[in-house]
């Protein structure tokens, strides 16, 4: 038996809106420790992982682990019927073929689950989520890829298009900066990665979920773009960097 109740449907709506461009169908794996989701985009270049902690819900009951395969567009369509401050309840019985209230069909999705190490990145930048979103959107009008370079001074975004180049440098702020404006850098060594902008732009759909975004980078590893939610834990996006052939 699974029972989840959230008094702010808006939060779940925001979570769904932030992932449904990237992934069409996904398994919500619910356990006593929380609801998690891990899914790759259709081209298998990007991936997301999401954790919704039990204490983020007003009521959370999960008697045994259950994996609910859902079509995210359908789920979003149903949740659109709820106002942001409405209460949403998700029940799934052990038959596992529907969630009641919404009577939405569940799907059987075979997906590969990957073990993702959390630590050991060469550079970790925290910056305002809205600033990162604006940079990605602006650069997306110019080029297809962006080179993100982190040094101890700051983070640089460089793109090249058919007709012009663009270069944005965000300097690390002082420790006294206000949280919503702060840019902090933890770095072992400078890192520079080239990434497809359309995926980064898709990740920034999660901007309404958090004030700050954490960008973790290492040479030769997927970049991690993490949004930490106030009450629900996190959503992380992974993207494989482009390499010169």
């Amino acid at each position: 038996m699974l029972e989840l109740r959230l008094t702010r449907a808006g939060l779940l709506k925001k979570v769904l809106e932030s992932i449904r461009d990237l992934v069409t169908d996904a398994n919500f794996d619910c356990a006593a420790t929380g609801c998690s989701l891990q899914a790759m985009d259709s081209s298998r270049v990007a991936m997301l992982s999401l954790l919704l902690r039990p204490d983020g819900f007003e009521h959370y009951r999960c008697d045994r682990n259950i994996s609910m395969g859902m079509n995210l567009a359908n789920m979003a369509r149903m949740l659109r019927c709820a106002s942001d401050d409405d209460t949403v309840t998700i029940n799934a019985d052990d038959a596992q073929d529907k969630i009641s209230d919404y009577e939405m069909k569940l799907m059987h999705i075979t997906s590969e689950n990957l073990e993702i190490p959390e630590a050991g990145y060469e550079a970790i930048v925290k910056m305002p989520a809205s600033l990162f979103a604006r940079i990605c959107k602006d650069l997306g009008t110019i080029g297809d890829t962006v080179m993100i370079s982190v040094t101890k001074e700051g983070i640089q975004f460089f793109t090249r298009g058919d007709i012009r180049t663009a270069n944005i440098f965000c300097r690390k702020t002082t420790p006294v900066a206000k949280e919503k404006e702060a840019i902090s850098i933890e770095m072992e060594k400078p890192v520079s990665l080239t990434l497809a902008l359309r995926y980064l732009i898709s990740f920034t759909k999660a901007t309404p979920l958090a004030k700050q975004v954490t960008i973790s980078m290492s040479y030769g590893r997927p970049i991690v773009v993490e949004y930490k939610m106030e009450i629900m834990d996190h959503i992380r996006f992974y993207l494989v960097p482009k390499v010169e052939e």
């Binding site: 790759m40 081209s43 298998r44 270049v45 990007a46 991936m47 590969e112 689950n113 990957l114 073990e115 993702i116 190490p117 890829t145 080239t194 497809a196 590893r221 997927p222 992974y238 993207l239 494989v240 482009k242 390499v243 010169e244 052939e245």
Partner: peptide, 14 residues
């Protein structure tokens, strides 16, 4: 020319 690899190359299966 730039090459794009798939993400599962970078992580082990659970």
């Amino acid at each position: 020319k730039q090459k794009q690899q798939v993400i599962s190359r970078f992580f082990a299966s659970k």
